[in-house]
């Protein structure tokens, strides 16, 4: 392995100051579960890693504010999300998703911030965060700013975070009483492999009618994206399987899957169709 500089700042401000907007090989690292694999393989050679392990405070906190919004600190391990009673109460789909996310060893170490900011389209939580209308708080030398989860992912390993910004927290808005959400995925190789397709659905329904829906797909695509045509196809329709078929068909048409070892373009398109339907059924009956 090529030598690199490792820094362990004690504050968020210090960590931000160590980032270099002009050098993409300077990276923050939290759990390191994804980055270390890349480094071992020789795919990523950093000039400097900024370890966030000494940072404390709200970055490691899960809490609900006075509006009922759920705040998840960027350094919260995924296993804490999985087991947190607050998360289970306010965003049960997040707890449930974490239970099948990779394996328990990874979940104990990997953090929410790393999971999101790594920008790998195979991650499980990004489509769910998009469906739930979550926002990310980014902090940098120019202060802080909020980014909608739907705008956070801009390409393969690329997010809207600037190179001198760190993700501080994710906030999931309080759900309305008539809403529910679900995430379903398909792993083509083994149960704890990266998904070939991941679909999240959040629906608002009343008396058997879908008032509104947000659908997002990941893994099959270059980045997690919303499925606008499928959302339009289900809006105002009944919670019957026929309506779900229409939305699934629309999703399969609008998505542009990338072929890889987990499936061809045609196969993944079909899997999107199947899993959009399943996600809608699951969300509508939660």
């Amino acid at each position: 392995m090529i030598p690199f500089d490792l820094q362990e700042p004690a504050s968020l401000a210090e960590a931000i100051a160590l980032l270099d907007p002009d050098d993409p090989s300077v990276r923050p690292v939290a759990g390191g579960t994804a980055l270390m694999l890349m480094m071992k393989a020789g795919l990523f050679q950093p000039t400097r890693l900024i370890s966030l392990r000494r940072l404390e405070g709200d970055l490691r906190r899960v809490h609900v504010d006075e509006h009922g919004d759920l705040h998840l600190g960027a350094l919260v391990p995924l296993s804490k999300l999985e087991l947190s009673p607050l998360v289970a109460e306010h965003a049960p789909a997040v707890s449930e998703t974490c239970r099948t996310l990779s394996n328990v060893r990874v979940r104990n170490v990997a953090t929410l911030g790393g999971h999101v900011a790594h920008g790998d389209p195979h991650m499980d939580l990004p489509p769910l965060l998009i469906a739930l209308g979550a926002r990310a708080r980014a902090v940098g030398p120019r202060g802080e700013r909020w980014i909608d989860a739907a705008d956070l992912f801009v390409g393969y390993y690329q997010t809207a975070l600037e190179r001198d910004e760190l993700l501080a927290e994710i906030v999931i808005p309080a759900p309305s009483p008539d809403s529910s959400a679900a995430y379903v995925k398909f792993t083509a190789l083994s149960a704890d492999d990266w998904p070939a397709v991941g679909v999240a659905a959040a629906v608002r329904r009343r008396e058997g009618v879908i008032l509104d829906a947000v659908l997002a797909v990941s893994a099959a695509t270059e980045k997690p994206i919303r499925l606008a045509a499928a959302e339009a196809a289900i809006r105002g329709k009944s919670t019957s399987s026929g309506s779900f078929d229409e939305a699934a068909e629309a999703a399969a048409h609008e998505v542009e899957p990338l072929a890889d070892i987990r499936g061809s373009t045609a196969y993944k398109r079909e899997m999107v169709r199947v899993h959009v339907r399943r996600a809608l059924i699951k969300a509508s009956h939660s």
Binding site: L43, H122, D260
Partner: peptide, 14 residues
């Protein structure tokens, strides 16, 4: 090799 295992998806995307 490793390039095919981990790099393939990124290559395909780009």
């Amino acid at each position: 090799g490793k390039l095919g295992g981990m790099g393939e998806s990124v290559f395909r995307a780009k």
